[in-house]
Amino acid sequence: MLLIDTLLLVLLLWLGFKITFTKDHFNAIIHFIVFGMILALAWVRLGAFDLALAEIALGAGITGALLLDTITFLKKIGREDA
């Protein structure tokens, strides 16, 4: 169990680093979506199944879709730096 926890948390931290320090915006968004899913697994490990469901659906799903749509829009009008 400790092994799974450690793996999960190291993965979370690595994703957090990637999200913060990567140069490419699109890359950051993809990492953020994966981050949401791994976080949902962490909620499962903590026994918070409601949160896992909500995190997958709201955090990764809707926020991720909105972020992708926003970056598409910004790329289309050429204002990625906004």
Binding site: F49, D50, A52, L53, A54, A57, L58, G61, I62, A65
Partner: peptide, 14 residues
């Protein structure tokens, strides 16, 4: 059990 309006609405919206 786990579940409820918020997860359900997010699923529906998805």
């Amino acid at each position: 059990q786990s579940g409820g309006a918020f997860s359900a609405s997010a699923l529906l919206a998805g």
